[in-house]
C-alpha cells in the first residue's frame, strides 16, 4: 500500500505545532499501525533530515495503555475494541490519506509530537483509587467473604480499564467520567471496597474537576471509542454513588 500521512509535529510543550505531510510506500496490510510508524521513522532517520516522530507506546499488545494517537479523528483509529498498537493496516486502503494527531484535551497537554502528558489520571487515582488495606498479608483468608459472581464479573469488567485516555480524547467536553467511574465502580461493587466508598467517590471526583476535565453529557462517545468497551453504566453508578455520598455525608 502507498499512504499519505498528515502528522502533527510539535517540538515541545511550548511550540505551536503544525501538521506535516509524509508519504510511505510498501506498507504491508499485516503491519500494525505502530509498525507502520516505525517504518516511517526508520525512513526519517536514514534520510537524516528531520527527527523521527515521537509517540508513546510500550507493550504493543493492547494492555499497558501507553499508546494513544488520534487517527482520522478517532482515538485509536477506526477499528473498535482496540488500542492503536492493535490496529492493523488492513483496516486502510491503498492510496489513503491518514491524519494522525495527539489526544486533544485540556487535561492532557502535549509533550512532543504525538506524546501527551496523562499524569492527571495518576493524580485522580492518588485521591482515592485504592482500598486502605496494609500490605502485611495478614488479612483474612481470601475465601472468607464470598462475592456473588455477577458482582465480581462486573467489577472485573470495570477494572479492565487501561487508563489510555481515549474516553477523554473522544469526548466533546473532554470528560474523564468513564475513567473515574470505572475505578469507583470496581471498588463499590466489591464488599472490600464498600467501607470507603463515600470518601473515595467524593475525593476522586473533586480531583477530576481540579484537573480541568469536563462534565458528562451522555453522548456515549467514550464508551464507543474505549478499547476495552467500558460501559456507560459505570458513569451512572458513579453518579449514584456520588449523590448518595453528598446527601448522607460521612
Amino acid at each position: 500500500m502507498k499512504l499519505t500521512l498528515k502528522i502533527w509535529r510539535q517540538k515541545n510543550a511550548t511550540d505551536k505545532g503544525a501538521i506535516k505531510t509524509y508519504t510511505l510506500d510498501n506498507v504491508s496490510e499485516h503491519m500494525s499501525f505502530l509498525e507502520m510508524m516505525d517504518v516511517l521513522n526508520e525512513q526519517l532517520i536514514t534520510e537524516g533530515k528531520e527527527e523521527p516522530i515521537a509517540f508513546d507506546h510500550d507493550c504493543r499488545e493492547g494492555i499497558c495503555g501507553m499508546c494513544s494517537m488520534h487517527i482520522n479523528g478517532e482515538p485509536h483509529g477506526p477499528d473498535r475494541g482496540v488500542t492503536t498498537c492493535q490496529l492493523h493496516m488492513r483496516k486502510f486502503n491503498d492510496g489513503d490519506t491518514i491524519y494522525i494527531e495527539p489526544f486533544r484535551a485540556k487535561g492532557f497537554p502535549v509533550v512532543k509530537d504525538l506524546v501527551v502528558d496523562r499524569s492527571a489520571f495518576d493524580r485522580i487515582q492518588h485521591a482515592g483509587g485504592f482500598i486502605s488495606v496494609p500490605t502485611s498479608g495478614n488479612t483474612q483468608d481470601a475465601n472468607a467473604t464470598p462475592v456473588p459472581k455477577a458482582d465480581a464479573d462486573k467489577a472485573f469488567d470495570a477494572a479492565t480499564c487501561i487508563g489510555c485516555g481515549a474516553c477523554v480524547a473522544s469526548c466533546k467536553n473532554a470528560s474523564a467520567m468513564l475513567f473515574v467511574s470505572a475505578k469507583v465502580s470496581q471498588f463499590s461493587l466489591l464488599p472490600q471496597g464498600k467501607v470507603e466508598a463515600k470518601r473515595r467517590v467524593l475525593n476522586m471526583v473533586e480531583q477530576m474537576d481540579k484537573e480541568g476535565f469536563g462534565n458528562c453529557t451522555n453522548t456515549g462517545a467514550c464508551s464507543v471509542e474505549c478499547p476495552k468497551g467500558i460501559s456507560l453504566e459505570n458513569i451512572a453508578r458513579m453518579n449514584r454513588e456520588y449523590l448518595k455520598a453528598t446527601i448522607s455525608g460521612e
Binding site: G137, A142, A152, A155, F187, L190, Q192
Partner: peptide, 20 residues
C-alpha cells in the same frame, strides 16, 4: 498470603457461582 492480600485490595479474581 499473596492471594489474601490481593483480594483485600479489591483485585477481582475469577469466582465460581458460590462466590468463592
Amino acid at each position: 498470603n499473596i492471594i489474601d492480600q490481593c483480594v483485600a485490595q479489591g483485585v477481582p479474581f475469577a469466582r465460581e457461582y458460590g462466590g468463592l
